[in-house]
Design a protein around this nucleic acid. Structure first.
Lengths: 193, 193
DNA sequence: CGGAACGTTGACTGTCATCAATCTCTGTGG
DNA sequence: CCACAGAGATTGATGACAGTCAACGTTCCG
């Protein structure tokens, strides 16, 4: 979870980093108190940029992979910006749920299951909403039985189509796919290391 | 000006492209009716991505330039997301004015001069605002004599510091600088061509 | 059992979107 | 040169949506 806090303003979670994603120090603006925080257990590989450069220069597949993963990040940020700017709060929440379902969800016979990142506050900050408002909307969705709320932070979406219908960005997110194609992430990172 | 329109939603201008910037087809999400429109006269160079790849692989300076320019684009989009999510309408307008002043402004003895992109609607769509609201805020700023409005689309900012004080993102935008350092854009693009 | 952190829900307020009327500017045709 | 039309900008009145504040519930600790 990458978040920044502009001076005299409140925190904004600007990006959710999922497995296979790539970030670079330069992605975060200066003077904005940018920090990278884990929302769930995960593994991070860190390496000097110069090493990445030489590897990319020597192997076209790696270069292609890197540029692809960066292009996807920009596309996602573009969608996120459109959400923040143009969608009402219900649509934004639906969009986040679609995103989480696509990227971290496991398919079960009853539907798609995924975990919410820790804390309502974090989610609200990602969506540019108030935690209270977010809570209200989640209750509304639950009453409309869009999903059920088994454990603390686990969501089971029974009817994914109904959820996607509430998010104008659903089609775009699905088009972006789950993980970058072409190379397997693991093997790739192992070669980089 | 890159804008997208999510289905069943209104248009969002997601990025302003300035001289020296670089975009790629993959930056725009699919299923979102993405289009690239000029807001002012300018020159665009277009080339196949494979050519860029080979050039970057052969010249570390070009690779460094490309990754730098992309990192800046992401940093800007991050700031823009924070604006849309967390700033009120006055702060967003101030932020845009700071951005335009920094990137397209000319310094005169009386202050900084720059042009507004064509049409209030475009600007409003960039800021996630209503054109009416935007107009009100511009009037408020003019009454506070933050700037004067000589011709139709020309803005003269007398007191840049006062304007920057109204934008929480001003410091971050200034830290990003005007153009990517290192290589001159023109000579670089000419070599690429 | 008690306390703290977090989530939920209700009542109220403020900001911004919407709609409509008016004004300004530009280009066209008489 | 003037009248007119059309597009865009401004501004006011109004309403809806989301933020704020506060009270209450829940869960998880010690």
């Amino acid at each position: 979870m990458l978040h920044i806090t502009l001076p005299h303003s409140t925190r904004q979670v600007t990006a959710l980093i999922f497995p296979g994603d790539l970030i670079q120090t330069g992605f975060a603006p200066l003077c904005a108190n940018a920090t990278l925080v884990t929302a769930a257990p995960g593994e991070v590989w860190r390496m000097p940029f110069s090493d990445v450069e030489t590897l990319a220069a020597n192997d076209p597949a790696i270069m292609r992979y890197l540029s692809d993963v960066v292009a996807r990040r920009i596309a996602r940020q573009t969608i996120h910006a459109a959400s923040l700017g143009r969608l009402d709060s219900e649509q934004r929440v639906a969009t986040l749920l679609v995103e989480l379902a696509l990227r971290t969800g496991r398919c079960l016979p009853q539907g798609v299951v995924f975990d919410l990142p820790t804390g309502r506050k974090d989610i609200a900050d990602y969506l540019g909403l108030n935690p209270d408002t977010l809570s209200r909307i989640m209750s509304r969705f639950r009453n409309a039985s869009l999903f059920s709320h088994d454990e603390r932070n686990t969501i089971l979406v029974q009817d994914f189509a109904a959820l996607a219908a509430r998010s104008p960005a659903a089609a775009s997110l699905m088009a972006l796919g789950v993980a970058p194609p072409g190379l397997s992430i693991d093997s790739d990172l192992e070669r980089l290391a």
